[in-house]
């Protein structure tokens, strides 16, 4: 699957993260830019979770920009799920 829309999820608040998704051209694969307040301690684990979630949704041709302010793992997963959902389905409200 590939994103249809540019999407955003999360906030800049402490214990949260903000995720931007942009669709890329076909066969571009995944481009991930990750910044974190706890990069030294949790950078590797964050990258792992991001790739796991993208695998779960079989996402490709996607550009992700992530700014993390020390979010716990379930929060990271929730925000990724929200961003991915918003990038493939139009938001209803």
């Amino acid at each position: 699957m590939k994103p249809k829309y540019a999407a955003q999820a999360g906030t800049f608040e402490s214990s949260d993260l903000i995720i931007l998704i942009e669709p890329l051209e076909d066969n571009s694969g995944r481009k991930i830019e990750l910044e974190s307040a706890v990069m030294l301690q949790y950078g590797d684990s964050l990258k792992k979770i991001v790739n796991e979630m993208l695998d779960l949704y079989e996402m490709t041709d996607i550009h992700l920009i992530i700014k993390d302010k020390g979010a716990l793992e379930p929060v990271v997963r929730a925000r990724l799920e929200t961003a991915i959902e918003r990038s493939v389905n139009p938001q209803i409200f």
Binding site: A9, L72, V75, A78, E85, R86, Q91, F93
Partner: peptide, 19 residues
């Protein structure tokens, strides 16, 4: 907020089971 209903639903879903 009305445009964050989906985000909150997903967040609560993940946190109820993990916190």
């Amino acid at each position: 907020a009305i445009n964050q209903k989906d985000a909150a639903r997903i967040l609560v879903k993940h946190l109820i089971t993990n916190i």
